[in-house]
């Protein structure tokens, strides 16, 4: 048992110069570092293990974001590359005074607020069903996972064909026109598609919170004379509050990115574009990197503000942000 715990460069070197007959060397206090070999090895290993993940994440997000800010300060249209020049905040003025931007922003906000609110209610119901149902729990959970897992574009096509007059089973049932060609009904269908797709995810996050409510607490509330509704509002909701806030935060930020459903359902027609859709159109369709990047930066800032509001105002605990429990 003369092998060292962590072969460092020095050890390897020592290994080479060691004679075959040499006795197993003892590691003593040759160096006197404040941290022992163990501790240092642990820190080294920790950094080493995290480095690849951290590098990839930083390379693919941090650098592009900075680059994006740089692009947003330029006039840069790939169709007219000669006109590329630094123009300061002019792009921001252009975007922020543009009514398309504000329409898209309004649409995005509307979709975010409505879908998250509806999902919270439906998700809570679904969570309770998945958590407490007496029969067919596996079946319910499996079915609920399908909307979560399914490719958004596939679901969006399903909704599109369902609401296309002639083809769809829903179009003729609920309206006589073409619902996807009118703004209000289009938005409603987009929201329906979003809600269908993400309610299960919300429900799963809430179910995690439900599992934290001790069964004894509910029994105690029952013996104390609480009705089912009182048990829900006075016992379950307070215990679940952290889980609810995390679910809301996740879903709000996710809803704000809405793109796939709109792309397939309306392609942004009839003023149903979201900010993501608008940025995409400027960028990939319009090839205007300057304006597209400006929108990207604005979206990023909005999301940061939403996250900040959640964390600071509501005290949402970021999941996984527990302190190192090594003690």
């Amino acid at each position: 048992m003369s092998i060292n715990a962590t072969p460092t460069g020095a050890d390897v070197a020592a290994e080479e110069t060691r004679r075959p007959a040499a006795v197993p060397k003892q590691r003593g206090g040759r160096r006197k570092p404040p941290l022992s070999e163990n501790k240092k090895a642990e820190r080294r290993l920790g950094l080493l293990l995290c480095a690849p993940a951290a590098l990839v994440m930083i390379a693919v997000t941090a650098y592009p974001i900075i680059y994006s800010v740089w692009l947003s300060l330029q006039r840069f249209d790939l169709r007219f590359p000669d006109q590329r020049e630094f123009i300061g905040l002019e792009n921001y003025v252009t975007v922020l005074t543009n009514e398309f931007w504000w329409t898209a922003f309004g649409v995005t906000m509307l979709i975010t607020v409505v879908t998250v609110a509806v999902e919270l209610v439906l998700g809570m119901g679904l969570a309770i069903i998945m958590h407490r149902t007496l029969i067919g729990r596996g079946l319910v959970r499996t079915s609920a996972l399908i909307p979560y897992g399914i490719v958004t574009v596939v679901a969006a096509f399903s909704w599109r064909y369902a609401w296309t007059p002639g083809t769809g089973y829903l179009a003729d049932l609920f309206s006589d026109g073409a619902p996807l060609t009118e703004r209000a009904s289009s938005l409603a269908i987009i929201m329906l598609a979003e809600i269908w797709k993400t309610t299960p995810f919300m429900a799963l996050l809430l179910m995690a919170g439900l599992a934290l409510v001790p069964e004894d607490l509910l029994k105690a509330a029952s013996t104390d004379g609480a009705t089912a509704w009182q048990k829900f509002t006075k016992v379950m909701l307070p215990v679940m509050k952290p889980a609810i806030l995390v679910a809301l935060l996740f879903r709000t930020l996710d809803a704000f990115r809405v793109f796939d459903n709109i792309f397939v359902l309306t392609a942004g027609g009839n003023e149903t574009s979201s900010v993501s859709m608008l940025a995409y159109n400027n960028l990939i369709r319009g090839l205007n990197l300057g304006i597209g990047s400006t929108m990207s930066v604005l979206i990023f800032i909005t999301v940061a503000i939403i996250a900040f509001v959640f964390v600071k105002l509501f005290g949402t605990a970021a999941p996984g942000s527990d302190d190192g429990e090594r003690r």
Partner: peptide, 21 residues
């Protein structure tokens, strides 16, 4: 880790030895 002082097992200082050693 031992912050200070010395630990000897069978007469040998083992402060910086890994558990397995």
């Amino acid at each position: 880790d031992i912050s200070s002082g010395e630990l000897r097992i069978a007469g040998q200082r083992v402060n910086d030895k890994a558990p397995r050693d």
